[in-house]
Design a protein around this nucleic acid. Structure first.
Lengths: 144, 144
DNA sequence: AAGCGTAGTGGGGAATTGTGGATAAAACTG
DNA sequence: CAGTTTTATCCACAATTCCCCACTACGCTT
């Protein structure tokens, strides 16, 4: 299971190191794509294939489905880890997530998320204030 | 699987380079035709044959089906890749998709789409704002 | 506390890719 | 049938990307 929060640098060649802790679980190949709330999702290849498979079954007659598939699939990019365990972030994803040089990589169960460090801090402080909602959600899923 | 987003130039001879990443999967022969939402679809030959097959089974009693099949089939052009991996876009397709010199080529699972760069940016920013719909669709395909 | 090992960062060189142009073949027209 | 325009194939340069190696810093162990 992928859990934890790490701050790394995005170098001028747009590479980010995947935290060593995650590497054995990610394997050598991963896929990066647009996520929600302006972050990027990183899937191990096996997980990605499951998701893509399901996507392909959506009827393309509906524009909602087309829109979604386009953002998700066209936004995706094969991100093999180099010999140092780094992945390459394409320009358009860097721009999408508003990444500067400091980025935060978080493990969220089956996938990783990549955030701009500033955006992550803002997001966190915003969410942390909503303790009551969090508590309620915890109850909903049966955590006490 | 064809995924990713690439910006290339349409030169004055109306040629576009297929991103190198896609070439081995596309092969040497492809078919270009009118797509949905004012972009062009590019299919590897084998995929195209499947699509055309399915289209031929649509009941031709409905005018919607007739119209769609005509646009799709009649608009299709054989687009073999030249030695540099480029395809040629006929005038009427260029006009249909409103292509200027900057175009975006996206991989969407089994096919590629070709967009005018400006149109793609507008489309993206419009869709990206619909966070609620995207989140809902993500749930549908089982991504959490 | 010191040394060893691992992890993160940065840079250099080589190969690949994209783009534009040049030359050759073909088609069209007068 | 010849000249002109259009289409196709090929070549070369320039820029980007990819891959490998080296350095530094931190942490853990002994």
């Amino acid at each position: 299971m992928l859990i934890g929060e790490f701050t790394h640098n995005l170098d001028e060649k747009k590479r980010v190191a995947i935290p060593a802790k995650f590497r054995k679980e990610i394997g050598k190949k991963a896929v990066v794509t647009r996520g929600l709330d302006n972050c990027l999702f990183v899937y191990p290849l096996s997980e990605w294939e499951k998701v893509a498979e399901k996507l392909s079954t959506l009827p393309m007659g509906q524009s909602d489905n087309r829109n979604f598939s386009r953002l998700f699939l066209a936004g995706a990019v094969d991100a093999s880890l180099d010999s140092m365990g780094r992945i390459l972030i394409p320009d358009y994803l860097k721009k999408f997530a508003g990444l500067k040089d400091k980025v935060v990589i978080t493990g969220v169960y089956k996938k990783l998320e990549i955030w701009d460090a500033g955006a992550w801090e803002k997001y966190k402080s915003r969410i942390e204030k909503q303790t009551d909602i969090l508590a309620e959600k915890l109850g909903e899923v049966g955590v006490y």
